[in-house]
């Protein structure tokens, strides 16, 4: 091949690739926000077998088949932001996450991705939270634990947002057929508590420290775009002080509870009162989320089923 031929071939390949690009569909981003207000119905299961708790709570809501259809791509977003072991309560319990993934697989999901945009080094947090090993232990090729890929953060406008009008969000979560939020209930110094809505911090990119100025409105705003089809709150053990990172077993209280629902505001409101003895109005993002129409914060209007 001489130089001329080489350039000719490169040009031909380039044209071919360009044509191929035009013919294939551009990946469509669709906002997952359901238009209607979610039903403030929560299922609570209590016991010491955490896998059973998850199964019971989801079953009480109608079973995972109600949330995940066969051949769908599901993103499961636990809180595994910290390089902390399970007993310190800084991350979602690995048994809880594993059970959620198993339920999705049983419901026929094509692919279940488990991921979080971590605070500590992701490799350390994924490993020491125990979640990576727990999910990989299922040994199903459809279930994967993925590290966040920086290329997949896309800038999105947030309709109706009051403060966070534009930010970068994780594409895989936006594009997934189903999105399941699996937070842990913790004390948080600035936000006071972190449960369902605050867990969305791990689904966004950018310089996240900046979000902490005006945090409550920002949390509510990001939940306009990031709407989970199902939220399963891990309250098997809760961190009552030193949050969000904790670090001492003394900070952790065993509650042996799992709370599931589709209304993130209702879960946070119920969690605040039932787990931590606070009022929903004490927590800024609960009030602001309610104002944005994300869910119900009035504890009297929230219906609890015991599973």
């Amino acid at each position: 091949m001489n130089r001329r031929e080489f350039f000719q071939r490169v040009a031909a390949l380039g044209i071919l690739a360009g044509a191929g690009k035009l013919l294939t569909f551009p990946p469509e981003l669709f906002a997952m926000a359901p238009a209607e207000r979610p039903e403030p119905l929560l299922a609570q299961a209590s016991g010491t077998n955490y896998a059973h708790l998850v199964g019971d709570a989801v079953q009480a809501l109608g079973g995972m088949k109600k949330f995940v259809n066969p051949n769908e791509v599901v993103v499961v977003k636990p809180n595994m932001a910290w390089d902390r072991t399970p007993e310190l309560g800084a991350n979602t319990h690995p048994v809880v996450v594993r059970k959620i993934v198993e339920l999705c697989l049983e419901a026929g999901a094509k692919r279940v991705k488990v991921l979080d945009h971590t605070c500590h080094d992701a490799r350390r947090a994924y490993a020491n939270s125990g979640i990576k090993a727990a999910v990989e232990d299922i040994k199903d090729p459809r279930a994967v634990v993925e590290y966040v890929d920086e290329r997949k953060f896309v800038e999105m406008a947030v309709p109706n947002a009051k403060s966070l009008k534009k930010w970068s969000f994780y594409k895989d979560i936006l594009e997934a057929d189903r999105f399941i939020n699996v937070p842990v209930a913790k004390h948080h110094s600035e936000a006071r508590l972190t449960m369902a809505m605050k867990n969305m911090m791990g689904a966004i990119g950018g310089w996240r420290g900046r979000i902490h100025v005006g945090l409550h409105q920002n949390i509510a705003d990001m939940n306009l775009l990031l709407r989970a089809d199902l939220t399963v709150l891990d309250a098997t053990r809760i961190m009552t002080q030193g949050g969000p990172s904790g670090g001492k077993p003394e900070y952790v209280q065993v509650k042996n509870l799992v709370i599931a629902g589709v209304d993130p505001v209702a879960i946070d409101a119920y969690g605040a009162t039932h787990l931590f003895g606070l009022q929903p109005k004490d927590i800024g993002y609960i009030t602001k989320g309610h104002e944005l129409g994300l869910g119900e914060m009035d504890i009297n209007k929230i219906k609890i089923i015991s599973a």
């Binding site: 605070c119 948080h188 110094s189 600035e190 420290g209 902490h212 100025v213 005006g214 945090l215 030193g242 969000p244 990172s245 904790g246 670090g247 001492k248 900070y251």
Partner: peptide, 22 residues
């Protein structure tokens, strides 16, 4: 520091502090 100068909450430093107690 933002809370000192702008009168707005931040506490990102406190949140990440790894020691126990912080």
């Amino acid at each position: 520091c933002i809370p000192y100068t702008e009168g707005r909450d931040c506490l990102v430093c406190e949140e990440h502090c790894p020691t126990a107690p912080k």
